Simulated assay, not measured.
Amino acid sequence: MKTKIQISGLALAIIGLLSSAAPLQAAPDHSQAVATPAKEAQGIVQAMKRQFDKPQSPLKVAPVVVEGDWALAGWLQDARGGRALLQKRHGHWVIVVCGGDGLRQADALVHTGMTADMATALAKKLNVAESRLSADTLKKMASFEGMLRVDGEAGHGTGHGAGHGAQSTHPKH
């Protein structure tokens, strides 16, 4: 009987210590390492469609990855494709650069003004997300030659007109 009381007393002491301690924190959710929050992805898709979508030639945007105020998004339109680098400015996503495979490289991303750590993290996220794409889709995204600086500030909110000059630089068939 004495043993049961001692164990019960010990159990109560442990419970008391646990209840007076700081609450347990949930383990960090690493499933968001590559996944992009839906609200952010939606804003990015809208920014790209606002600039490049056409009724006769809809723009498909995927995958989308975000790191801080920077994002990379793959896109397809007709037989063409590429990638876009976006930056969040004044609460809105704007396209900064359009390109092909060059935007998969952290070194190229650093030249856009982001830190090396941010560029490395963003490139890794994009490469993981793109690993799920078909070879045909990746080939289309690689077809965009070079990189084109897009004036996202001027193009923001101006509709399709801002995108025509940038779009005309897509590779020809």
Results as ranks from 00 to 15, higher is better:
13 A>H: 11
14 I>M: 11
16 G>T: 08
17 L>F: 11
20 S>C: 11
22 A>V: 14
23 P>Q: 13
23 P>F: 15
25 Q>E: 15
28 P>I: 04
28 P>L: 04
31 S>F: 05
34 V>P: 06
34 V>G: 05
35 A>L: 12
35 A>V: 10
36 T>D: 01
37 P>K: 05
39 K>R: 08
39 K>Q: 10
39 K>L: 11
41 A>Q: 10
42 Q>P: 03
45 V>S: 00
45 V>P: 01
46 Q>E: 10
47 A>L: 04
48 M>T: 01
49 K>E: 03
51 Q>Y: 09
53 D>G: 07
54 K>F: 11
54 K>T: 11
56 Q>N: 13
57 S>C: 12
57 S>M: 13
58 P>G: 07
59 L>G: 06
62 A>F: 07
63 P>I: 09
63 P>C: 06
65 V>Q: 01
66 V>T: 08
66 V>G: 03
68 G>M: 07
69 D>R: 10
69 D>G: 09
70 W>E: 08
70 W>P: 04
76 L>D: 10
76 L>K: 08
77 Q>E: 09
78 D>E: 12
79 A>S: 12
83 R>P: 04
84 A>N: 01
85 L>A: 07
86 L>N: 00
86 L>H: 02
89 R>Y: 08
96 V>T: 14
96 V>K: 15
96 V>D: 14
97 V>P: 09
98 C>N: 15
98 C>R: 15
99 G>Y: 04
99 G>I: 03
99 G>F: 04
